[in-house]
Structure formats: structure tokens, C-alpha cells
Simulated assay, not measured.
Amino acid sequence: MPAAWLNWLEWLHATPVALAMRQSEWLYPTVEILHILGFCALVGAAGLFDLRLLGLSRQIPVRQMAAHLLPVAWVGFAVAAPSGFLLLLADARSIGVSPIFMGKMALIGLAGLNAWVFHARVGRNVQEWNQGVDAPFAAKLAALLSLLVWVAVIVLGRLIAYLT
């Protein structure tokens, strides 16, 4: 690990917020619950959209699903990301160097990149396969990758508590 990273983790670990996360009886579990709820919204919305792309509920227009689910995913991310950062603060020195944590962060980045590529490339032609027909192979591939990556993120997130 680079010294700058380790120094930053040390600094994070010593902040008043990190101290409060470790010392308060209710703060850590409350933040953890918020993190889980945010993640449920994010991954639930993404998962439902992915399943639609994979062929479930073809009678529901893809654009309509996206219009309903994308805001839910963004709210979930807006809750999960800062609450996850607060959870990191509680034990930054250990979690921040964990390969499991690093893997989780890399996979979240991959999920974001996959979503961006889908919306920027494949999703631009959604009107051609919006309802009643199979999504193109590229859309199905993006959906499958998304599902696999989010499951792996959840698994690694749980393992942080046990293997870090």
C-alpha cells in the first residue's frame, strides 16, 4: 500500500466522526441499517431493470421501467455511499487495506461503468426493443454482468465484517 493511502486512513481513523462511530452505542448500527436500506434500494432497482432486460415482464416498456427505477437507484446510492464511508471511518486502518474492501470498491466502479456504457450506447436504441420483444444481446450481456457484479458486491460487503 502507498504510504499516502495509509496516512490518509490513519487520519480518517482518528477523526472525531470515526471516534463517535466507535464509541456511540447506537450510531454504528443506525448507519449500518441506513447503508443496508440504501443498498437494497440501489440493487433492488438495478436488479429489477436487469431482469426486464433479460426477458422478464416483456409487456412492461423498458423506458417506463427505467423512468420508475432509475430515481430509486440514485436515492439508494445517495444513502449507501455516504453511510458506507461512515462505516469505513469506524475502522479505517483495517478496512481500508483489506483486499475484500478494495475488491468491493472495484466492483462498484465496474457496476457504474457498466451502467454508463449501457445508457450511453445500448440504451440509446431502446425504442426499437422497448416492449414485447427481446432486448439485444448487448443489453442482455450488460444486465447479466450487472446482476453478477451486484451479487459479488453484496457478498464482499458481508465478508468485510468477518474477514477484515
Rank of each mutant, 00 (worst) to 15 (best):
G84S: 01
L145W: 08
I60N: 12
W8H: 10
Q59K: 15
S146N: 03
R63W: 12
M1L: 14
A115Q: 11
A41C: 14
L88E: 07
A73R: 04
R63Q: 13
A14M: 04
H119C: 09
A138C: 05
L89C: 00
A161Q: 08
V153R: 05
S98G: 13
L42R: 08
T30V: 06
P61C: 04
L145D: 04
I154S: 05
L113A: 15
A18W: 02
G47E: 10
G132R: 10
N125W: 11
L141N: 06
L9E: 04
Q127P: 10
L34C: 06
I160E: 13
W8K: 12
R63C: 10
L107G: 04
E128A: 12
L6K: 15
H68T: 10
L53C: 09
W74L: 15
L42H: 05
R22G: 00
F137Q: 14
V117D: 06
V122T: 15
V79D: 04
L148M: 12
A67P: 01
I60C: 11
G47W: 12
M1R: 11
L12G: 03
D50K: 01
L88H: 09
T30G: 00
W116T: 07
M102R: 13
V133C: 07
L113M: 14
P136E: 13
D134C: 12
L144R: 12
V151K: 05
R158K: 09
G112Q: 00
R63S: 15
L53V: 11
D91I: 05
L86Q: 04
G38I: 09
A67Q: 13
F39D: 13
G109I: 06
G96T: 01
W26L: 11
K104S: 01
P99S: 06
R93K: 07
L51T: 15
L37E: 06
M102T: 10
S57C: 14
G157H: 04
R124M: 06
F49E: 04
V97G: 10
A20V: 02
V17Y: 00
G132H: 10
G76F: 11
Y28T: 11
A18N: 06
S24K: 02
W129T: 15
V43A: 13
A80W: 03
H13R: 00
L156D: 02
M21N: 05
V17N: 02
G44S: 00
R124P: 09
R22S: 02
R58L: 09
L12F: 05
S146D: 04
L69D: 05
A92S: 03
L12I: 08
R22M: 02
V79H: 04
